[in-house]
């Protein structure tokens, strides 16, 4: 089955080599698509050195925009399943098969770090924000998710198709993406996975923007229209 790893990378030159090396070693048959939008530290050169597909955009579109491009590429190349993998070394390549095996029973699989087997801690305000979000998502989708912001995810072909057009472009895209998939009738499932600490670089600190994104997400949840695309589980 044609499988691709979508790796969004923004100034991750430090950790990217190890990440790419590990994926390649474990899954030489996987196509690795690095999406770089405006990194200034040679991130895209590293991706090319490793022989990965490197999509680079002239300026920063944010992680949502980067992912949508990744999905678009996969869709054009008729990739049958794809998984999202962070470039900062937080995701564990040994967990990829586990994630992909989840696709047998679902259209989209989220590798969750909040189930019993977790070893990862996040900041307090983000924790509060996340628990509120979980509640809202449960309210609007009727499903329970424990780790809505996890960027360790796998998608089947129909979901790749949907996201190549409809992937949310703003911060908290991870949450909105779940909503879009569920609203389109796809079966989204969570499985517990192991994650690591960042291996290099700065963790994202956008807490001060949380309120704005919260309001935006509220609007998305309650006002957002049902999309036209039909899903099949």
């Amino acid at each position: 089955m044609k499988t691709a790893a979508i790796v969004p990378a923004f100034n991750e030159a430090e950790s990217l080599p190890d990440v790419l090396q590990e994926i390649k070693q474990a899954f030489p048959e996987h196509l690795i698509v690095v999406v770089d939008d405006g990194s200034t530290d040679g991130t895209s050169e590293i991706a090319k050195e490793f022989g990965c597909v490197c999509l680079s955009m002239p300026f920063n579109l944010g992680i949502g925009g980067a992912l949508r491009l990744g999905f678009r590429y996969c869709n054009e190349k008729e990739i049958e399943r794809a998984y999202q993998f962070d470039a900062d070394g937080q995701h564990d390549p040994t967990q990829i098969s586990l994630l992909l095996s989840g696709l047998q029973k679902a259209d989209m699989v989220i590798g969750s770090r909040f189930s019993e087997e977790n070893s990862y801690e996040v900041g307090r305000s983000r924790k509060t924000a996340m628990s509120f979000l979980r509640f809202l998502i449960r309210l609007s989708t009727g499903h329970k998710f424990t780790d809505t912001s996890s960027g360790f995810r796998a998608f089947n072909k129909p979901v790749i198709g949907l996201f190549s057009e409809e992937y949310p472009l703003e911060y908290m895209d991870s949450v909105e993406a779940i909503l879009i998939a569920v609203k389109n009738g796809f079966n989204v499932r969570e499985i517990p996975v192991q994650m690591r600490e960042r291996s290099a670089g700065q963790p994202s600190n956008r807490n001060f923007r949380l309120i704005y994104y919260f309001l935006r997400l509220l609007i998305v949840i309650f006002v957002g229209s049902r999309r036209k695309t039909e899903g099949k589980a």
């Binding site: 999406v35 090319k48 597909v53 490197c54 999509l55 680079s56 955009m57 002239p58 300026f59 579109l61 925009g65 949508r68 491009l69 678009r72 590429y73 054009e76 472009l169």
Partner: peptide, 16 residues
């Protein structure tokens, strides 16, 4: 603009 930027990235990859 976003769609254009995506298109540019895809084309650039193809060219390279």
């Amino acid at each position: 603009i976003r769609t254009l930027v995506e298109e540019i990235a895809l084309l650039k990859e193809k060219l390279e």
